[in-house]
């Protein structure tokens, strides 16, 4: 095959990709690039870092800190509980029950959003059923120190969909720990603790990291649940950016862009770490 027809073949092959690529460019890539560019331009089109400086005021810094705090906390809780619960599901003797629990996790992890927020109001609101239950049967009065509309309420709601996500991620990781490794380690003199310390946990570590980071990103980018539950009471980055779009409060759009770019950086880092960690995990458990 001579060079020109090879060229032709290559071009026609890539041409098949055009509709899809155009779509992605038009509605994803180009807008984001323009967004980033816009964050460095002022109203007259000159380069500036003013938006970022404006975004560094206490109000917005607090929202960033809140988002980071919420994401980190729910990711940590979700990881710890998820690993523990995931392990127990993995080791459950009945396969049918196992599959049911995994299906349940699959469904509940997608329940984020307004319905979830409202469900938590029903359950943990000032007249919520669990609130009532604690009051009447255990004499515990959780209000007003606790409020479902506060940071802690939001945490509990976020953990609701973080937990099953971790369960779904960690069960294949446990399955990837081959039985022969355990037997081989035992044969070489390791007891249960020595096995988990030297082999089990190191092999799980990449999956744990990947899971934590994914949970963090998941929480950081969430909007609907927080919007429904806390409205404007609690300041989060996603909510702030939302305000600049709907123009509910007078905001300089540039600040929204600056915050958006900041969010992209954080999310991008998470995704990058996730890729590296899950590749490592796959490499080890594939062989």
């Amino acid at each position: 095959m001579n060079n020109s027809s090879r060229w032709q073949k290559a071009i026609s092959a890539w041409a098949g990709l055009t509709p899809f690529l155009l779509f992605c460019l038009a509605f994803e890539i180009v807008p984001i690039i323009l967004l980033v560019r816009g964050s460095f331009l002022d109203k007259s089109g000159h380069l500036t870092t003013a938006h970022y400086v404006d975004a560094a005021t206490p109000l917005y810094l607090k929202s960033i800190w809140n988002s980071v705090k919420l994401s980190g906390l729910t990711a940590a809780i979700g990881t710890l509980l998820g690993v523990f619960i995931g392990y127990n599901i993995y080791r459950w003797p009945s396969k049918r029950v196992q599959e049911l629990l995994i299906t349940l996790s699959d469904v509940t992890t997608n329940f984020a959003g307004a319905p979830l927020a409202f469900a938590f109001i029903i359950v943990l609101g000032s007249n919520g059923i669990v609130t009532q239950f604690l009051l009447q049967y255990l004499g515990l009065k959780i209000y007003p120190t606790f409020s479902v509309y506060s940071f802690s309420g939001l945490t509990l709601a976020y953990v609701y969909f973080q937990l099953p996500l971790m369960v779904l991620l960690i069960i294949p990781a446990f399955a990837g720990i081959k039985k022969e490794w355990r037997e081989s380690a035992t044969n070489l003199g390791a007891n249960t603790f020595a096995f988990w310390w030297n082999i089990g946990i190191p092999i799980l570590a990449p999956s744990l990291l990947a899971g934590f980071v994914l949970l963090f990103a998941n929480a950081f980018g969430a909007y609907a649940t927080a919007y429904t539950l806390t409205g404007s009471r609690l300041s989060l980055v996603t909510l702030q950016i939302g305000f600049t779009i709907t123009g509910e409060v007078l905001h300089d759009p540039g600040i929204g862009q600056a915050l958006a770019v900041g969010s992209l950086l954080i999310m991008g880092t998470c995704i990058a770490i996730y890729q590296v960690a899950s590749n490592r995990a796959r490499q080890w458990t594939r062989r």
């Binding site: 992605c24 807008p31 779009i245 992209l264």
Partner: peptide, 20 residues
């Protein structure tokens, strides 16, 4: 390209599209 959407929060995509 299929990983990219996971790294873009909904509000950010909305903002960029509305502005463009």
């Amino acid at each position: 390209l299929m990983i990219l959407p996971f790294g873009i929060p909904g509000v950010v995509l909305a903002l960029s599209l509305v502005q463009v």
